[in-house]
């Protein structure tokens, strides 16, 4: 899986879980999105894990507070390049 494919999947999950559209290529930070509260954060994590077949570390859950960071961590775990 390429990094672009990982980003596409994470974007789809975020749009579905948060119930909003995301502009192509734009980042989304938790601090800027009111719907992204602690419960939605965990739901996002769960759904990304299910979709990509990976598991984030408990220690990093709180730090994954933007689309970019989620994509980066997921891509690293999947060894996704390009």
């Amino acid at each position: 899986m390429t990094r672009a494919e990982v980003e596409k999947s994470v974007r789809e999950v975020m749009q579905t879980v948060l119930g909003r559209s995301l502009a192509a290529g734009a980042d989304l930070r938790r601090v800027d999105e009111p719907a992204w509260d602690s419960l939605k954060h965990v739901e996002l994590i769960f759904t990304i894990e299910e979709t990509l077949g990976l598991q984030f570390d408990a220690e990093e859950l709180g730090e994954l507070d933007s689309l970019g960071k989620l994509v980066a961590s997921a891509a690293r775990r999947l060894g996704a390049g390009g």
Binding site: V42, I45, T47, F56, A58, L61
Partner: peptide
């Protein structure tokens, strides 16, 4: 799934 418990207090897995 104890990971989420730190954030939400919820221990059931997805």
């Amino acid at each position: 799934d104890r990971r989420a418990a730190r954030v939400t207090g919820m221990t059931l897995s997805d």
